[in-house]
Simulated scan of single mutants.
Amino acid sequence: MLLSKGFEVEMYTGTPQGQIIGLSDKIVADLDGFVIEPDNRNVEYTTAPFYRYEKLLCALVRPRTQLRHYLKQQGDYTLIPGSTLSLGDSTQFHRSDPQNPYHTYIEQTYGTKVVTASIHINIGISDPETLMRAIRLVRLEAPLYLALSASSPFLDNQATGHHSTRWQMFPKTPTHVPLFENHPHFIRWTQEQLNLGTMQNVRHLWSSVRPNGDNRPYNLNRLELRICDLVTDPIALLAITALLEARIWQTIENPSLDPLNTSQYTPEELIHLTDNNETSAAHQSLDAQLQHWQDGRTITAKDWIEELYEQTRPVAKKRGFSCFLSPIKKILREGNTAQQWLKMYSSQQTCQDIIANSIQTLAEQETELEDKLCQMLVA
C-alpha cells in the first residue's frame, strides 16, 4: 500500500538563450491542464494523484512534452529551469490577468518576490489528526527538502550568495504560523487570520507546508509541501517525494514520532529553530549548518538527510518503492542544481551560458524519459 501523490509544477517560459518571456495567458487559452500565475512569465500544471511512482513520472513529463510542442509552434520558445528570474527582469511585474483583483493585491503587496517557480508536493492523508501530526513533523524537516531541491542561485544575471534565492526572498504569509495542535486548532486559527486580514482567502497560507483539501480549513485530505525549489529532473523529484512519503509512513505507523511529544523544545521554540534552519538552508542548502529539532545538536543538512535516508530505506523497501528513494544518494554525492550551477559559475561560466546549457540538457532528458519509460509503460 502506498499513499497518493501529486505535484503542482510552476515553470518559466522563454527563449533557448534563457530570456524569460510571458506566454501563460496564451498557453492557458490554447491548452487544457495549465493555469496562469499572477505573473505571465510562468505557468503551472498539476498532476492527478497517483499511488505508483512510475505513473507519476509520466504525469510529470507528458504535459511538458505537450507544452514544448506548443511553444515551438509559437516561435523559438522553450521551458526554462530554475526558480527565480535568473537572467531578469525582477523590476517589472508582467500581469497575466489585469482584471483579477487578487492578482492586483499580490502585485501591490509583494511585487516580483512571488514571481518564482517551484514544486508543490501533495501527499494524500485522509484522517485529519494523522494529517496534522505529519504536518508538524514535515514542517520541522522542511529545510531538508529545500536543501535537496535548491535551484535558484541567480537573479538578474548575478549570483546572489544564496542557493535558494526564491525561498530567501519569498514572502512567507502570515509571518507567524503555529504548530497546529489538532484540526480544530487549524480551523480556529484560519478563521482568525481571515477576520484579521492577514490572509485574503483560505489559499493565502504561504508556509513551507500546509494542510490542503477541497474545503479548507474544514475538509482536508492531503499534506502540501511548498518549500521546494523547481526540480526539473523527474527522477530526482521522485526521490525527494519518496523520502517524504517514507517519513510520513513512519509517523503514521509510530504516532509518538511527533515534535509535540519527542522534542525537548516548546512549540514556539521549535518554530524559531525551524525558521532559522529554513534561512540557513536557503543560503547554503546541503552544506547548511542546521539545528536538530529533537535534541538541538548542530548537523549539516547533508548529514541529516543521510540519517533520514538510512532510517527510511527499510520503510520504502517494505512498501516497494526503495528504488525511487535511492537517487537521494546521487543528489548528496553530486550536489543539487544550485550547487552544480555555482560550480560552473566559479569556473568563469556566465549565468547565461549556464542557463542556456541547462535548457538544452532538460529538453534532451525529457525526450529520453518520454521515449524510454513512458512509452514502455503504455505498452
Rank of each mutant, 00 (worst) to 15 (best):
L3P: 04
S4G: 06
S4Q: 04
T13K: 09
Q17D: 12
V28F: 06
N42Q: 01
N42T: 03
L60N: 05
R64T: 12
R68W: 02
H69W: 12
L71I: 03
Q74V: 07
Y77L: 02
I80E: 04
S83F: 12
D89Y: 10
T91Q: 15
H94F: 14
S96C: 03
T104L: 06
V115C: 04
D127H: 08
E129R: 13
R133K: 10
A142N: 09
A159T: 06
T160K: 14
H162P: 05
H163R: 13
S164A: 11
M169E: 03
V177L: 03
E181S: 13
E181A: 12
N182H: 05
H183R: 09
P184A: 06
R188I: 02
Q193Y: 00
L194W: 02
M199D: 00
M199N: 09
M199P: 10
Q200R: 14
N201F: 05
N201H: 01
R203I: 11
H204Y: 01
P217Y: 00
P217T: 05
L225P: 01
D229E: 03
D233K: 14
P234G: 01
P255D: 02
L257F: 14
D258L: 15
P259T: 00
S263V: 11
L270I: 07
D275C: 10
S285V: 00
L290T: 01
Q291D: 01
T298Q: 10
W304F: 05
W304M: 11
Q311F: 00
P314I: 00
G320D: 04
I328A: 14
L332C: 07
L332A: 15
W341T: 02
M344T: 04
S346V: 06
Q349R: 13
A356G: 00
Q360Y: 07
E364S: 04
E364D: 13
Q365W: 03
E366V: 13
L369V: 14
K372G: 08
L373R: 09
